[in-house]
Amino acid sequence: MTDLPTPPTVSAAGLTLRYGSTAALDDVSLRLGAGVTGLLGPNGAGKTTLLRVLATAVPADRGAFTVLGHDPNTTAGRQNVRRALGYLPQTPGFHPDFTAFAFVDYVAILKEMTNRAARHREVRRVLDEVGLGDVRGKRIRRLSGGMRQRVALAAALVGGPGFLVLDEPTVGLDPEQRMRFRELIASAGEGRTVLLSTHQTEDVAMLCHRVIVMAGGVVRFEGTPAELTARADGRVWSSTERDPGARAGWRTGTGSFRNVGDPPEGATLVEPTLEDGYLLTLDASDAASASSSEVTA
């Protein structure tokens, strides 16, 4: 793990949360600084649970964290964390009869903005920022999925939060909408701390200055995207047939096979990508779990 380029704004130590016998978070420690940090991991890795804990939606069983110097385990500290927070949940809910403006206005009121004129200026600002200024009077049920997602992002941005938590915001968006959303997130990451959960390694490659990989409720990697990519240096090769010794292999558009794992002697090595580094990190996690199970057994 490399040092953060800026002082940490969010620090967590030993976060643990169990659902029955399953550890959704198992002794998770991390530090976030200004800019966009990507949170990668397969389904069930604990990403959403971590985001919900850091957003103060659910308390951890054990462990502690601070956001911008505030401790959420005190009433005053929790209020301060929430005042500094913008949260876009995995499946944001809406009051469908509300217009985009009314919904963001509603969230602004929940964020204690009671001055009507100032609040309306702020609502207009964030709707313009996400490109919905022209449809602010439309009812949410009449908006497309991509537009609804942008309404939810506007609600997260209202009030200018210092810590933005985005849970898989690009899921279900078409390529053009996804690119538009990446632009918005990149812009939102200027001068604030953004934690972005995603399945898309392209999101991380294009947006993030740091990346965290989780699997089985445990942090498996924390560093820069370049460092994650470097994990696959010398471990990606091409071949005319699928290499049975590869951890993963697939036919590419050119007809050749791209293999990831431990290359055989004389293999034709190719430039690794972030996804290769991610796959190898997950694979190492699986191997470590299997070996741990064998030892336990």
């Binding site: 929430r82 949260y87 809910g93 969230v107 929940l110 964020k111």
Partner: peptide, 18 residues
């Protein structure tokens, strides 16, 4: 029952007040 419950619960307005 509240579609915006998760956004509501992390808002600084106290849940009991709402």
């Amino acid at each position: 029952l509240d579609p915006t419950y998760e956004m509501t619960v992390v808002a600084p307005m106290h849940g009991f007040r709402l």
